[in-house]
Amino acid sequence: MSCTVRIASPLRSYTAGVPALAARGSTLAEVLANLEQRCPGIRFRMIDEHDRIRPHMRLFVNTSEARELSAVVRDGDTVHVICALSGG
């Protein structure tokens, strides 16, 4: 399965500034593993050591928020990585 991953600006130091990349995988876990191979270090900034999405990160598959890395990703989907932060 091939999808597009749209990268929030705080993570673009890992993608050489590129805002969207193609990635392969049939679940979010596989997509992020594929992304990690090309952008080393990016996964741990989003996902903790117990495979939980970090508190200030939100992952969407198309327009649906995914709370688990087991979420299904289909061919042609867009995965959105969004940062959620409040305050100064």
């Binding site: 929030a8 705080p10 993570l11 270090g41 741990f44 900034r45 989003m46 996902i47 903790d48 970090r54 200030h56 990160m57 940062c83 959620a84 932060l85």
Partner: peptide, 8 residues
Amino acid sequence: KTGHLGPT
């Protein structure tokens, strides 16, 4: 770390 991203 940053407000959004994990520690490193």
